[in-house]
Structure formats: C-alpha cells, structure tokens
Amino acid sequence: MTWAVIERCGGQVRAGMGTPYALDFTAVLMLADAMGASTTLLADVLPSIEAVIVKSYQEESENAD
C-alpha cells in the first residue's frame, strides 16, 4: 500500500514560478492515511523520494525548453 501512495504522490508538489521545488508532505501523508498506508514509513522515506521527484520535474522542465 505504501508503494501505491508513492506512485500517486508525484502530483502533490509545491511550485514557485512554475517550477516544482518540494513535495507537499501534508497532502502526501493525508493521502497515505486515506489509503490505509503506513504514514510512519512514509515520513521516513519522503525526504529521499522528494529529491527524486523534484529532480525529475526539473529535468523535464529543462528538456521542454
């Protein structure tokens, strides 16, 4: 179940000037709670996952230019 939350959390980003810079942890943890996933586990891994998701969005934005 935790992996399902991770797959869906890519849309829960904070953005400024049109560029994502962070995940909205509150939204992701609320999603996890609603899905019955382990919020404790997600709280531990979110910082690492955040870096990967944000970097992916930034690279995608650079390639679109």
Results as ranks from 00 to 15, higher is better:
Ser61Met: 13
Lys55Thr: 13
Ala43Gln: 10
Met30Ser: 14
Ser61Pro: 00
Ala22Cys: 03
Thr26His: 05
Ala32Tyr: 00
Thr26Gln: 11
Ser61Glu: 14
Leu46Phe: 09
Gly10Arg: 01
Gln58Val: 04
Cys9Gln: 03
Ala34Leu: 10
Ala15Phe: 05
Thr19Glu: 14
Thr39Ala: 10
Lys55Cys: 11
Ser61Val: 10
Tyr57Asp: 07
Thr19Met: 15
Ser61Arg: 15
Arg8Leu: 13
Glu59Ser: 10
Pro20Arg: 08
Leu41Cys: 10
Ala64Glu: 14
Val54Trp: 05
Asp33Phe: 00
Val54Lys: 01
Gln58Glu: 13
Leu41Glu: 15
Val52Lys: 05
Gly11Glu: 07
Glu62Leu: 14
Met35Leu: 12
Ser56Asn: 12
Glu60Gly: 15
Cys9Phe: 02
Leu23Asp: 04
Leu23Met: 09
Ala27Met: 09
Asp65Asn: 11
Asp24Leu: 02
Tyr57Gln: 05
Asp24Ser: 06
Gly11Arg: 06
Ala27Gly: 13
Gln12Glu: 15
Leu31Phe: 03
Phe25Ala: 14
Leu29Phe: 01
Ala37Phe: 11
Ala37Val: 09
Ile6Ala: 09
Ala32Asn: 08
Cys9Val: 01
Ala37Asn: 03
Tyr57Arg: 04
Asp65Leu: 12
Val52Ala: 10
Pro20Ser: 11
Val28Ser: 05
Ser61Cys: 04
Leu42Ala: 08
Thr26Met: 04
Met1Phe: 05
Thr40Asn: 11
Gly18Leu: 10
Ser48Cys: 09
Ala4Trp: 07
Gly11Ser: 10
Glu59Trp: 06
Ala32Ile: 03
Thr40Gln: 13
Arg8Tyr: 06
Tyr21Leu: 08
Ala43Asn: 11
Gly11Thr: 04
Ile6Met: 08
Glu50Val: 03
Asp33Pro: 02
Glu62Asn: 09
Ile6Arg: 07
Val52Pro: 02
Gln58Thr: 11
Pro20Phe: 03
Leu46Ile: 08
Glu60Gln: 14
Met35Asn: 07
Ile49Glu: 04
Asp33Ile: 06
Gly10Cys: 09
Ser38Cys: 03
Leu29Tyr: 00
Glu62Met: 13
Glu62Cys: 03
Ala51Asp: 12
Leu46Trp: 03
Asn63Tyr: 11
Glu59Ile: 12
Lys55Trp: 11
Thr40Ala: 15
Val28Trp: 01
Thr2Asp: 15
